[in-house]
């Protein structure tokens, strides 16, 4: 049901932009108004979500560890897997963000004859996820050539490395192929693994289809239905310099691509894709395991009226002395 609904949604979006920009020629709406609205929603949505998360109290450390905690000096601590300092936390987060380390530990449980429970290495999700995310980042950075004048050297460098291969005489971007393969795999595993399929919702399928449509429209535009990229850059530069222009003669495939990316930007802050910020705010990843070394006071503790032993003794000293109970302070 999730697949059908998500596909239907993508189809509706495609039809909307095809009729809007292609047939009716609403280029100002799809080329300027929607991208600006999408960028605004994206930025404010991200700020809203992160600030909202930041307001949640962190009562205690959650030491989900994979290594030895720092304790006695002669026991070797695991500095990254069980960090006790900020540097260790930064190391753990960096490995998590850049290499998806916890996903690398993914295993697959299987019940075999016996009955015997067996755990497998399962690296495909890690590999697919890693390829997808790095390809997406590379493609995102490559697109800066449309949004900068002059194009910074790091963008040209990324393009040069990524476009090392040739199809005919033009560059064949490796990431273009990788992202299509990786997203297709990420979708495929949701469908064929029964347990994953069972927990998959439209909110899981829709981002995959959206990114697949986005990448596919980009590939079509680059290698098959070419558009006047010079005019495209005129439009994109108009957007980033706040002098929006709509040059004539850009093919509808460009508006389809731009619309999909706008939808992605709008959907981003309100969807699972917010793991972009969420990974940095994961308590299991960003807290040093120093529960023993430092005292962490629950932030929602309210002042409690206490009656200390000293006060208790003060109150009942006479009676305690009569009963022969030993006193801390003999006279008071």
């Amino acid at each position: 049901m999730g697949i059908g609904f998500s596909l239907l949604l993508i189809m509706a979006l495609l039809l909307a932009v095809f009729f809007g920009a292609g047939v009716l020629g609403w280029h100002l709406l799809f080329g300027v108004v929607i991208p600006y609205a999408a960028a605004t929603i994206f930025l404010f949505g991200i700020i809203y979500r992160v600030v909202k998360w930041g307001r949640a109290p962190i009562p205690f450390r959650i030491p989900t560890t994979c290594g030895q905690q720092k304790s006695l000096p002669w026991i070797k601590p695991s500095r990254i897997d069980n960090p006790s300092s900020a540097a260790g936390v930064i190391g753990r987060l960096a490995l998590e963000v850049l290499l998806f380390r916890s996903l690398f530990r993914n295993t697959k449980a299987e019940l075999r004859d016996g009955p015997r429970l067996a755990y497998h290495w399962e690296k495909w999700l890690w590999l697919g996820g890693l390829l997808f995310h790095w390809s997406f980042l590379t493609i995102f950075l490559r697109h800066l050539r449309f949004f900068t004048e002059p194009v910074p050297s790091f963008v040209s460098f990324i393009e040069g490395v990524d476009g090392f291969l040739r199809v005919g005489v033009q560059a064949l971007y490796i990431t273009d192929i990788l992202i299509l393969v990786a997203v297709t795999y990420l979708f495929w595993r949701r469908v064929v693994i029964p347990q994953v399929r069972y927990i998959s919702l439209p909110a899981d399928y829709f981002p995959l289809f959206l990114i697949l449509s986005l990448a596919f429209s980009g590939v079509l535009m680059r290698y098959f239905f070419r558009v006047d990229v010079s005019a495209v850059k005129e439009l994109t530069m108009g957007l980033v310099t706040f002098h929006p222009r709509i040059p004539e003669g850009i093919g509808v495939i460009f508006y389809i691509h731009l619309f999909f990316v706008s939808v992605l930007f709008v959907y981003f802050p309100y969807s699972k894709m917010m793991h972009l910020a969420g990974i940095f705010l994961s308590p299991t990843r960003n807290l040093a395991n120093n529960s023993r070394a430092c005292r962490h006071i629950n932030p929602w503790n309210y002042p409690v009226k206490v009656h200390t032993y000293e006060e208790y003794e003060e109150e009942f000293r006479g009676k305690m002395r009569e009963a022969g109970i030993p006193l801390e302070k003999e006279c008071g």
């Binding site: 930025l43 900068t148 004048e149 910074p152 530069m237 980033v240 310099t241 002098h243």
Partner: peptide
């Protein structure tokens, strides 16, 4: 970082070639 294109191009005319 995400607003890089907006501040990188400030004050540039960015006329089409």
């Amino acid at each position: 970082l995400i607003t890089f294109p907006f501040w990188y191009n400030v004050g540039k005319s960015a006329a089409a070639p």
